[in-house]
């Protein structure tokens, strides 16, 4: 897995709560049997007009979001379906980090499997980031950039915004070292076998 240590990038501000995985990657694109190529369909039903051209009012299509690698959103981001196609689409589009006050549980886990860092911040901090992004858009600079240091668990801009964030230590280590979770778990094969033996397995009744 690709490791994640430090990252600096442009922020795309998506002022919406309860963004569900059906919006992140609509079901008509779930029939592919690969992990790649989903970025072109990210937020499809919001991103494109019915004639297939980009909707200029959609957050990701605005000039200030061009080249964005950090997505800023409101509460309960990634709710709904467990489809890992959602982080696949975000990663394939170029996102490395999503910032929100809260995330849905399954989506949150799925991000770590794909080297995307989901950062939970207090609602007022997220509100401040929305304001900073808005101010940057109105100024000459246009784009708002943030820096992330996963070693230090800090998030900061080039001015005065700085916050620390929390990540479960094991998940942090997996991201920092780019660990393959399956290889890591297979090191515990003896313990898995011992559990099975203690529980009289395998012994599935066949129908």
């Amino acid at each position: 897995m690709q490791s994640f240590t430090k990252h600096s990038g442009v922020v795309a501000a998506m002022d919406r709560s309860n963004v569900d995985t059906d919006q992140i990657i609509p079901k008509q694109f779930l029939k592919r049997i690969e992990r790649t190529g989903f970025g072109q369909f990210l937020f499809n039903d919001w991103r494109f007009l019915s004639d297939g051209t980009p909707d200029p009012s959609f957050e990701l299509n605005r000039p200030e979001a061009e080249g964005a690698t950090i997505l800023l959103a409101r509460r309960n981001f990634g709710c709904g379906s467990s489809r890992e196609h959602a982080p696949w689409a975000l990663a394939d589009y170029g996102f490395r980090c999503v910032i929100a006050p809260t995330f849905a549980d399954i989506f949150y886990s799925n991000c770590f499997s794909n080297s995307i860092l989901p950062i939970r911040l207090l609602e007022e901090d997220v509100e401040q980031l929305f304001e900073l992004a808005k101010a940057a858009t109105a100024s000459n600079t246009g784009k708002y950039e943030l820096n992330i240091d996963l070693n230090e668990c800090t998030l900061f801009d080039d001015d005065s915004f700085q916050r620390s964030f929390e990540v479960e230590p094991f998940r942090r280590r997996c991201l920092l070292e780019g660990l393959d979770n399956i290889s890591l778990s297979l090191k515990h094969t003896d313990e898995i076998s011992a559990w099975e033996k203690a529980h009289g397995l395998p012994s599935v009744v066949s129908g």
Binding site: S109, N110, L186, I192
Partner: peptide, 20 residues
């Protein structure tokens, strides 16, 4: 509970899951 595809692969390979 529901899991993502990477976890599906993990369960197929190990019959176990990492979980807090």
């Amino acid at each position: 509970f529901g899991i993502g595809t990477s976890e599906v692969e993990h369960v197929l390979a190990t019959q176990a899951l990492r979980q807090s």
